[in-house]
Computed example of a mutant assay.
Amino acid sequence: MNFEPFITCAVTGAGETADKHPGLPITPKQIAEAAIEAADAGAAIAHIHVRDPETGKGARDPKLYREVVERIRDSGKDVIINLTAGMGGDIVFGQGENPLPLDPSGTDMVGPLERLVHVEELLPEICTIDCGTMNFAAGDYVMTNTPSMLRAMARRVQELGVRPELEVFDTGHLVFVKHLIKQGLLDDPVMIQLCMGIPYGAPDDPLTTMAMVKQLPEGAIFSGFSIGRMQLPYVAMAALAGGNVRVGLEDNLYLGRGQLASNGDLVSRAKQVLEGMGARLLGPAEVREKLKLVKRWG
């Protein structure tokens, strides 16, 4: 049991959820306000994607990231900013017997350094790196992260002095994390997010979770989460396994059956669960010290 966990709130994500929740943050102003709301409720870290304000679809425009980050920083609210670097690795094949050409409506594939343009420009304390390629959903979509791409991203993030949060969706991704460590591309402490229950990665059952925890690199600091209705049960599961916690509208839209949530609602419920288990939540300053983060503002 981790009796001093921290909470990360993933406030919006990039999935096709804009039409499923009228309060989902879409514009930079809404996303920044959601991050501040989450911090007010007890989250130490805000994990941030951006969306096209016109369509609500996931985006990677550095101008959108800049507006979100500046709004958070200008607010004076102390929250650790964690920007995704997962966008730009989307391949959608053509259907059936015609996988090529790729489907242009869903494919967004760029080089590893282009995926880090916003990170290089804004220098958040944390950015995410998805640690493998996988069939992420039904159909012909593949989340694409080759070993050479990931090594290039890890090297550049290390040069920038930004802490990478390594998104691990299955056991093979942990093998790759250990390769990055051996190659000197990750500084201590290594920060890992166990992403459970996502098709078609590791299922969100306790035995699989604990098997992955047992394979973590020595000294790694990890968080864990699941999606949908299992998000809130995994608040307890992650802490019991010795880790930290992630909640938020990126992964789950509901507080209960038929009850749409806000990010603040989900963080407040996670805080209630953790404190009910006897835990004390770490604030941003304590998390910075624990993760040896470099704060460049405020």
Rank of each mutant, 00 (worst) to 15 (best):
A279L: 10
L207E: 15
L102F: 09
P189D: 12
L166V: 10
L122N: 05
V287M: 03
R257I: 14
R229N: 15
E165W: 06
I126N: 00
S268V: 02
Y200R: 05
G161V: 06
V235Q: 01
K57S: 11
G219D: 09
D188G: 13
F222M: 13
V175W: 08
L194R: 05
F6S: 01
I227K: 11
G256V: 05
I36V: 15
I227V: 15
G201R: 04
R151V: 14
D52M: 07
I221H: 06
K29E: 14
G283F: 01
T209I: 15
E121A: 14
E289P: 04
T8L: 04
N252M: 10
L185Y: 07
G298H: 13
K20G: 12
I227Q: 11
M87G: 09
M277G: 08
S223F: 00
G276S: 10
N145R: 10
T144R: 03
T133H: 08
A39Y: 03
P203H: 04
G13S: 10
D61A: 08
E4W: 00
K182W: 07
E16D: 15
R115V: 05
I36D: 01
P5I: 05
A138Q: 04
I81N: 00
P99N: 10
A14P: 02
Q259D: 15
V273D: 08
S75E: 03
L253W: 03
M87P: 02
V175R: 08
M196P: 00
K178Y: 01
M212E: 01
P104K: 03
G56W: 02
Q231R: 12
A241G: 12
T146M: 08
P233C: 14
P199C: 04
L166R: 02
S226Y: 13
G86Q: 00
G224D: 06
A41V: 11
E97G: 14
P124T: 02
A43M: 15
P203E: 07
A14S: 13
R288D: 04
T171C: 11
P203K: 05
R296A: 13
V11H: 00
T144P: 06
V177W: 01
I80A: 05
A236T: 14
N145L: 12
R73V: 09
A241Q: 03
Q231C: 13
D61M: 07
N98E: 14
Q231D: 14
L216S: 06
A238R: 01
T144G: 08
V69N: 04
P233Y: 14
E125K: 01
T27N: 11
I81C: 04
P217W: 09
F176L: 07
T144E: 06
L232R: 02
K57A: 15
G86E: 00
R163T: 13
C127L: 05
P22T: 04
M149R: 00
F169D: 01
T17N: 14
